[in-house]
Design a protein around this nucleic acid. Structure first.
Lengths: 223, 223
DNA sequence: GTCTATAGGGTGATAGAC
DNA sequence: GTCTATCACCCTATAGAC
């Protein structure tokens, strides 16, 4: 609203986000948020009006930050790739890479993905509307790209591949939260992320009958 | 504890479970549980001691109900299938079917899966220990079966396939909760469940280099 | 914009009658 | 085993001084 807003509001937004991501809307009090942000409880109401509004703003902020827009962009220039299987394969790999950045980020905090998953599990009408504007179109566009890569698929079949991609990545967001209590679980280091990328790429390229790029063939020995 | 316990305790368990599955531990008050179960607030403390204990008992109950034990059983008689690709394919399909019953159940209430996912997102040391005893071994055994089906895989690669299976099914548990606020989302009817089963079967069989059974080939036209 | 003080309501838990 | 009454606590939100 105001042009030169001080940092307090942003600090509150980030702090609240991290806490919400870990414990959910009901699991965090505005007292805890204010304490961690070294701000005052009343400041939250001053800047956001209410706890619910703060949560909504946090979710909106995170949704916009982790948004995946590549599919939409690719659909504006389909003639560049749709008829060439090698380019289709490259397009699919790019989509996987973008989606992985959403959940295994370098650029933004790790808890963004957790908050996103939590938002899915605790929907409200307002959140649903927000998601309908931001997430649903993005996913529909990914599904459309997949269908262009393999036109023989039905809409539902293509959707299954989108769900496979999203499901596996979402699964790791969960597991990471849970892993702290299960000692032997592996850590999500860069090596693991690379393994997941290769797994998803092979899986989708095979499923969409696209050729595997050389870089994915290395350790792909048939039995 | 007592031999001929009346129904009240069980009613409380089921009622609390459904409410916890929808709103989480923090999202439900014991007053709401008592009201819906037509029981008294004090009865909850009498039977379970505390709200946290009630939650633990609910989770333990659900975990035992939706437990997947087929992989463990298959591992006791590997010589019957491991050397025959067709039988390996059958084994994999059986594992998918069992796992789908866990999330798209006919036998038990739909909210079991939701509670399970919520438990993963809100871990506590006690829940972690419980999961370590029940879930982790089951999943390890599934991974072991996959490795026997395709011995050239590393442990981590095999784990990725387990995660693919679990992730996709978990993803639908989420989406179902969220779908009520996103009008155009499809309903999870039996036709959809069948589509998902075929999708996962093809995906895993292809990935594990196993033959596709006739029943999965019908609409599998190559482009 | 920031802070203190406080209102007003919901929470989990318990004591004690039946 | 079940119920009522009640306690002590924590919560969100707001009023008003600075």
């Amino acid at each position: 609203m105001d042009g030169a807003a001080p940092a307090t509001k942003d600090i509150l937004l980030e702090t609240a986000g991290e806490l919400f991501a870990d414990a959910g809307l009901d699991g965090v009090s505005i007292r805890a948020i204010a304490k961690k942000a070294k701000a005052n409880i009343a400041a939250i109401h001053y800047h956001f009006g209410s706890k619910d509004n703060l949560y909504m703003e946090v979710v909106r902020h995170v949704m916009n930050q982790i948004r995946c827009t590549l599919a939409g962009e690719l659909l504006t220039r389909t003639e560049e790739w749709r008829s060439d299987p090698m380019r289709c394969a490259d397009v699919v790999c790019q989509l996987i890479e973008e989606r992985m950045r959403q959940f295994f980020p370098d650029a933004h905090p790790r808890w963004y993905g957790r908050l996103f998953m939590r938002m899915l599990l605790n929907p409200t009408p307002a959140l649903g509307k927000l998601a309908e504007e931001i997430i649903v179109p993005d996913l529909d566009q990914v599904t459309k790209v997949f269908r262009l890569c393999k036109p023989s698929m039905t809409e539902t079949e293509a959707r299954c591949w989108t769900d496979t991609l999203l499901g596996q990545l979402g699964h790791y967001v969960f597991s990471e939260q849970f892993a702290q209590y299960v000692p032997k679980k592996n850590i999500y280091d860069s090596e693991f992320v690379e393994t997941v990328y290769r797994h998803l790429s092979r899986l989708l390229l095979k499923g969409l009958d696209l050729p595997l790029p050389e870089s994915l063939k290395d350790d792909c020995f048939e039995e």
